[in-house]
């Protein structure tokens, strides 16, 4: 009972903080936090594959990017489309892409899975640059109209050029996504996911359909990556190949998950935060994003393979041990 009260009050405090965040900090940090939320959700969707199913993808940005492009194209070309259907169209594009890729990707594992995604990612990147009449080439699609947020005419507020409104909008959408993903890992199906990671053969013998389960997980992961990508495109009012399809976008998710800790649900959120703080600090001294990402990856893999949550778990264990000792 006491635990429950502390838990609820803790969540309330977090919620209060998030609500008051734009009042407490300046515009710059509001924008930074939106970026953080987008990449946290993107990394969570990536970790659905890596941490919970044991599939390492080097091209998760394809879903992030295609959804951004989908939303941007919908808003540009369809006259008077409301916001949510536009986001829905982008996410639908990501889901369709995932469904198309499924027959190939669920049959390969390990290194081949990673490499196939690297290839698909590169392909999408090249296509986005080459199909200039659709995607705008290097310039991407920018300055598309962003309609007001409205739900069944109940309320309506503008997003364009209004970072604070956008902050709350992103907070709600991405918060719901995070909760849904958390919920997903707790369902029986989420347990099958972990089973596939740990012992694919046994799951197979138990009568679960491994390729089909993997497909469902894959499509779900693409869905959430798509939501993140769509929000990211709206946030910048720009989708470009370099911003959302580049292999570095995929690597951002990988690095964040690594830093946070593979296999822990909240790991990628911690990881994204730490990665962003590190980037924020180093960017003042150097423009080399690749160098920073690379060095962080090497250090984490070599010296802290379980990431930040692993570190926390070790601390907790030590604390419990010392408490147990004190009690005798």
């Amino acid at each position: 009972m006491k635990d429950k009260i502390t838990k609820i009050s803790l969540w309330l405090m977090v919620a209060m903080f998030l609500l008051a965040y734009p009042k407490l900090f300046g515009m710059y940090y509001v924008n930074l936090f939106v970026t953080f939320m987008v990449f946290a959700v993107f990394s969570l969707s990536f970790n659905m594959l890596l941490g919970f199913t044991g599939l390492l993808s080097f091209g998760h940005a394809i879903f992030f990017g295609i959804s951004g492009y989908g939303t941007a194209l919908a808003l540009r070309h369809i006259e008077g489309i409301p916001l949510f259907p536009a986001i829905g169209l982008g996410v639908l594009a990501a889901v369709i892409l995932a469904v198309v890729l499924c027959p190939v990707v669920v049959r390969v594992t390990g290194t081949a899975f990673a490499m196939v995604h690297l290839a698909f990612g590169q392909l999408m990147y090249v296509l986005a640059l080459k199909l200039r009449n659709i995607t705008g080439g290097e310039d991407g699609i920018g300055n598309f109209p962003i309609p007001n947020v409205s739900l069944f005419g109940l309320f309506s507020f503008p997003l364009k050029n209004n970072p604070v409104n956008f902050y709350y909008f992103a907070l709600v959408i991405l918060g719901i996504c995070t909760w849904l993903m958390w919920f997903f890992t707790k369902t029986p199906f989420g347990q099958i996911q972990v089973g596939i990671r740990d012992n694919t053969k046994r799951i197979d013998y138990l009568g679960f359909k491994v390729p089909e389960s993997k497909s469902v997980i894959y499509v779900t992961s693409a869905f959430f990556a798509g939501v993140a990508g769509s929000i990211y495109g709206l946030f910048h009012n720009l989708v470009s190949a370099d911003g959302s399809l580049n292999v570095l976008v995929s690597f951002t998710a990988i690095t964040a998950t690594l830093i946070g800790g593979i296999g822990s649900f909240f790991g990628p959120i911690w990881g994204t935060a730490i990665f962003q703080i590190l980037e924020e600090l180093t960017i003042r001294f150097t423009e080399q994003v690749e160098l920073v990402t690379g060095i962080i990856m090497i250090i984490v893999i070599m010296y802290a393979p379980r990431g930040f949550t692993g570190f926390l778990a070790t601390l907790k264990l030590k604390w419990q041990l010392s408490r147990a000792k004190r009690r005798g």
Binding site: L50, L56, F58, G110, T111, A114, F251, I254, L258, Q288, E290, L291, T293, G294, I295, I296, M297, I298, I301, M302, P305
Partner: peptide
């Protein structure tokens, strides 16, 4: 050499890290 203990995914990601550092070095 030190990495063989942590499994293939770790090695794969380590080599990605190395390639990023080389890319940055070349640009520099």
């Amino acid at each position: 050499r030190r990495m063989h203990a942590f499994g293939h995914l770790g090695e794969l990601m380590l080599t990605v890290g190395i390639s990023l550092v080389i890319l940055a070095g070349v640009k520099f």
